[in-house]
Computed example of a mutant assay.
Amino acid sequence: MAMITLQQSSGQGVTVLNNNFIDNYMPEANGEFVKVYIYLLRLLSDVSVPFSLEQMADHFFCTERDIVRALKYWEKEKLLTLSYRSNEDIADITLNMPPLKQTSVSTPVSSSASPLSPSVSPSSETVNAAQPRTSRTSASSTLTPDRVKELKQNDEIVQLLYIAEQYLGKTLTPGEMKKIMFFYDELKLSPDLIEYLIEYSVSRGHKSLRYIETVALAWAQEGITTVAMAKEASSRYMKDYYTILKAMGISGRNPVDTEVTLMDTWLKDYGFTMDIIQEACSRTVLSTGQPSFQYADKILSGWKNKNVRNLADIRLLDAAHEKQKLEKAAARRNQAPKAASQNRFNNFHQRTYDFNEYEKKLLNQ
Rank of each mutant, 00 (worst) to 15 (best):
119 S>Y: 04
341 S>Y: 11
241 Y>H: 13
18 N>H: 15
152 K>F: 04
265 T>N: 08
194 I>D: 00
10 S>P: 01
323 K>Q: 12
208 S>F: 03
156 E>M: 13
19 N>F: 07
19 N>W: 05
111 S>L: 14
121 S>L: 15
127 V>I: 02
40 L>K: 02
5 T>P: 01
214 T>V: 09
349 H>L: 12
88 E>V: 09
102 Q>H: 11
54 E>R: 07
207 K>C: 06
205 G>C: 08
285 V>N: 01
28 E>I: 14
279 E>H: 08
244 I>T: 05
232 E>A: 08
293 F>P: 00
356 N>F: 06
96 N>L: 15
199 E>P: 01
270 Y>G: 04
194 I>A: 01
220 A>W: 00
89 D>Y: 05
169 G>E: 07
210 R>E: 13
215 V>Y: 00
110 S>T: 14
120 V>D: 01
331 A>M: 09
272 F>D: 00
9 S>E: 11
330 A>K: 02
53 L>P: 00
114 S>P: 01
209 L>R: 03
260 V>D: 03
227 V>K: 07
229 M>E: 15
195 E>Q: 07
81 T>H: 13
170 K>I: 07
105 V>N: 05
339 A>R: 07
350 Q>R: 14
81 T>V: 12
102 Q>I: 11
176 E>T: 03
327 E>C: 08
71 L>D: 06
333 R>L: 15
197 L>W: 06
18 N>W: 07
163 I>M: 02
243 T>A: 12
324 Q>G: 15
254 N>G: 03
97 M>R: 13
278 Q>L: 03
137 T>V: 10
119 S>Q: 08
256 V>G: 14
317 L>D: 09
111 S>Y: 11
146 D>I: 09
142 T>E: 10
219 W>G: 00
237 Y>V: 12
281 C>P: 03
89 D>T: 13
30 N>F: 04
57 A>F: 05
253 R>N: 13
271 G>Q: 11
153 Q>W: 03
39 Y>T: 03
120 V>M: 13
62 C>A: 13
154 N>Q: 10
310 N>D: 15
196 Y>E: 15
206 H>A: 06
9 S>I: 06
247 A>T: 06
228 A>C: 06
51 F>E: 01
340 A>M: 14
4 I>F: 07
60 F>A: 02
171 T>N: 10
159 Q>A: 15
62 C>K: 08
291 P>G: 04
235 S>W: 02
183 F>R: 00
159 Q>N: 13
336 A>V: 05
359 E>A: 13
116 L>N: 02
75 E>D: 11
227 V>A: 09
147 R>G: 00
261 T>H: 14
94 T>M: 05
178 K>T: 02
316 L>K: 07
213 E>Y: 02
13 G>P: 05
118 P>Y: 03
77 E>N: 08
260 V>G: 04
69 R>N: 13
49 V>H: 01
165 E>I: 09
250 I>P: 04
304 K>M: 10
127 V>S: 01
37 Y>E: 02
344 R>I: 14
317 L>F: 08
